[in-house]
Computed example of a mutant assay.
Amino acid sequence: MAVYLADEQDLDIDAEDLLDLARHVLAERRVPGDMELALLLVDRDTIAALNAEHLGKDGPTDVLAFPIDEPGESPPDTPAILGDVVLCPAVAHEQAEGLGRTPHDELRLLTVHGILHLLGMDHAEPDEERAMFTLTDELLASHGRS
């Protein structure tokens, strides 16, 4: 599984931990090994522009997920790209304190959250939200044990 990280913002983050966490989530969710994932760390202006362009919403957000290929649907001998998870560490840092988490823990949670969106999970309905957030907690906990 190839996981790439592009850091296009100014805050210090633990890139290796986020990459390791992303690989862990993909392995735990049994994503085929030929799938690729990109984590993009951007500033508030960049994520606000993406939020407006793709979701029609004003202002910055914490994470956006852009799926590309479904696991197992790419033709043989072609790259399979799961998608991109775009994270805004500045927003994660701002909301972490109010949620009782460290900025790094918030960024880790958002990384898992974004990957689960790429894998087709959502939280529009209460039962979906419960399932997604339970799985997020389980994946974060199991990463700490692996």
Rank of each mutant, 00 (worst) to 15 (best):
L26V: 00
V91P: 11
L140D: 03
D34H: 13
M121N: 09
L19R: 02
V91N: 05
T61G: 10
P75V: 11
R30G: 01
P71S: 14
M132A: 02
A141M: 05
F66K: 13
V91S: 08
L118R: 01
G33E: 06
A38H: 09
A90R: 14
A80T: 10
L110I: 04
L11R: 00
A90K: 13
L118T: 05
D20P: 00
S74E: 11
D105G: 14
A15Y: 01
E106H: 06
H123Y: 01
A80R: 11
D84Q: 14
E73I: 10
E28K: 04
G83Q: 08
L139V: 03
R145L: 09
V31A: 04
L21C: 04
P103K: 10
M121K: 02
A52G: 09
A38R: 10
P76W: 10
P71R: 11
H24I: 02
L55S: 15
R29M: 06
D43E: 12
H24S: 01
T102L: 08
L41D: 06
H123A: 04
L139C: 02
L119W: 06
P71L: 12
L140G: 10
A141V: 09
E125L: 08
G120E: 03
E36L: 09
E28M: 07
R29F: 05
P76S: 06
A22Q: 01
A90T: 15
R44T: 14
V25D: 02
L55C: 15
E73Q: 15
T136H: 01
E97I: 09
M35Q: 09
A15V: 05
H123D: 07
L40R: 09
H123M: 01
L41C: 14
T78S: 12
E28F: 01
E128R: 00
L135N: 00
E36M: 07
E16W: 06
L21E: 00
E128D: 03
A92M: 05
E70S: 13
E94K: 13
E73P: 11
D34I: 06
G56Q: 10
A141H: 10
A124P: 03
D20F: 05
G33R: 10
D14A: 05
D10E: 12
M35D: 05
D62I: 13
E97H: 15
P60E: 14
A141C: 06
G83C: 10
L50D: 12
I13M: 01
D34F: 03
D45G: 08
